[in-house]
């Protein structure tokens, strides 16, 4: 019985984090900050939902599948974020104009890729 309630609490937390991740995706100023919000919040949110299903169902077909899905998301989401941000850095997508430092641009391209005040990102 306690696992039932634990599962529902986990699912509710997951949904809230997913909502915040989506909100960050709209609200943050440039690609890299948006990637931060979407990867972190959505990873923990989806893992929370999957863990909740595991708590409710226990060790049977559905529960084990949910657990493996959670692990899979935990491993693949950072890799996807890494690939997308690396691609856009190499392509030359500019950082937000209030960014402080850009070591990647200075090392690899010779100039920093921080955009000007009025430039669109």
């Amino acid at each position: 019985m306690i696992f039932y309630y634990l599962g529902w609490i986990s699912i509710i937390f997951g949904v809230i984090f997913n909502l915040l991740g989506a909100l960050g995706l709209v609200k943050f100023p440039d690609l890299y900050n948006r990637m931060q919000a979407s990867t972190k919040c959505v990873t923990i949110g989806t893992c929370g939902i999957m863990l909740g299903i595991f708590f409710i169902r226990g060790f049977n077909q559905m529960g084990i599948k949910a657990l493996i899905c959670a692990l899979f998301i935990l491993f693949t989401m950072p890799v996807a974020a890494h690939a997308l941000s690396r691609g856009s850095l190499l392509f030359g997508t500019k950082l937000w104009h209030k960014s402080v430092i850009d070591k990647f641009g200075e090392d690899k391209k010779g100039y920093s890729q921080i955009s000007k005040e009025d430039e669109a990102t």
């Binding site: 984090f17 931060q36 919000a37 919040c41 937000w96 430092i101 850009d102 990647f104």
Partner: peptide
């Protein structure tokens, strides 16, 4: 996650981003 969630909800958007190595 709590850190990023707070930054999302904060009205002043407290961001100071950059790339370090």
């Amino acid at each position: 996650n709590l850190d990023v969630a707070l930054r999302v909800l904060h009205p002043g958007m407290p961001l100071k981003p950059g790339i370090i190595k």
